[in-house]
């Protein structure tokens, strides 16, 4: 069949190209530029090749931040996913209380990140904070400003408080989509509560839980505002996660070259982990349907 050839149609793609160029490609390329050059300001650049990358790959400062970051993400995933599922299972399925629960659950998600940080910063203070003062009065030695363990606990509890709702709401949506017939069949089959969870609820929630894990991993791996407001990365470097370290390096020390190399690698790590995660999960899905 004869088809009309009209290459002017390519112009229709132009707006997208422009938007993507300005929103992603050009900013990223400036970072690439910084990472390959050394600069002393005035837009004067000296070619540095892969030097900054080499420096960063072998930097123990970055290794430590990466280790802290990985530990943080692992801990909050290990807490938030089971806790969110548990909450979702115990939420009312319908009626007024279901709506009340949904609104209450959504509240922490609506609070701006630095406000969350400020809330917990004050909440945990030993002199005027409700939590800190109560613990102090109860004779528990708690001070997030000079004890690394206390700082970690505060930051983790804050993240759990802030984000468990997201997991719970996703899991709740997954649960709500299970047809009643499944529960009825399970009752007829005399399935135990555990069996219902293991063979009906969990498989049906898998899709949303996959998304929850992915979102929570990416988000926690990039966390900056809340711990920065609460601890500022301290005491010492104990809560200096990757983003906090990056900002210190780029804005505080004005080491633009190493910081650019750092941020590119940071970006690639997140991309890589997310990709591996996604591929593994979709492959599992495909194997299932064979």
């Amino acid at each position: 069949m004869e088809k009309t050839q009209n290459n002017r149609a390519w112009f229709l793609v132009l707006p997208v190209l422009v938007i993507v160029a300005f929103s992603a490609v050009i900013p990223l390329m400036t970072v690439v530029n910084y990472s390959l050059n050394d600069t002393f300001g005035n837009n004067q650049f000296f070619w540095a090749g892969l030097e900054w990358f080499e420096e960063m790959v072998t930097s123990s400062r970055l290794h430590d931040a990466l280790a802290r970051q990985a530990l943080f993400s692992a801990i909050i995933l290990a807490i938030e996913i089971p806790l969110g599922v548990f909450i979702a299972l115990n939420m009312p399925k319908k009626g007024v209380w279901a709506s009340v629960c949904l609104v209450l659950m959504a509240l922490p998600l609506l609070i701006p990140f630095n406000v969350v940080g400020t809330i917990w910063q004050i909440f945990g203070r030993v002199d005027i904070g409700l939590l800190g003062h109560t613990l102090e009065a109860a004779g528990i030695d708690y001070n997030y400003t000079n004890d690394p363990i206390d700082a970690w606990i505060t930051v983790i509890v804050m993240d759990v408080w802030h984000w468990t709702s997201l997991v719970a709401l996703l899991a709740y949506a997954g649960l709500q989509s299970i047809p009643q017939a499944y529960y009825q069949a399970a009752r007829i089959d005399q399935a135990s509560r555990w069996s219902v969870f293991r063979y009906i609820e969990l498989p049906k929630m898998r899709g949303v839980l996959l998304i929850a894990v992915l979102l929570r991993f990416m988000d926690s791996f990039m966390i900056y505002t809340e711990p920065f407001v609460v601890t500022g990365g301290g005491p010492g470097n104990s809560t200096t996660f990757l983003s906090i370290d990056l900002v210190k390096m780029a804005v505080g020390q004005f080491d633009l070259g190493p910081a650019a190399a750092f941020s590119l690698m940071y970006f690639l790590v997140i991309l890589l982990v997310s990709w591996v995660f996604y591929t593994v999960m979709t492959n599992l899905d495909r194997e299932d349907s064979k």
Binding site: Q184, I188, Y199
Partner: peptide, 19 residues
């Protein structure tokens, strides 16, 4: 309860334990 009645029921749409 359903479980105590010892009956079997087949529903309109298939209910299987996927995993």
């Amino acid at each position: 309860e359903t479980a105590a009645r010892n009956i079997a029921q087949v529903f309109q749409f298939p209910v299987v334990y996927d995993t």
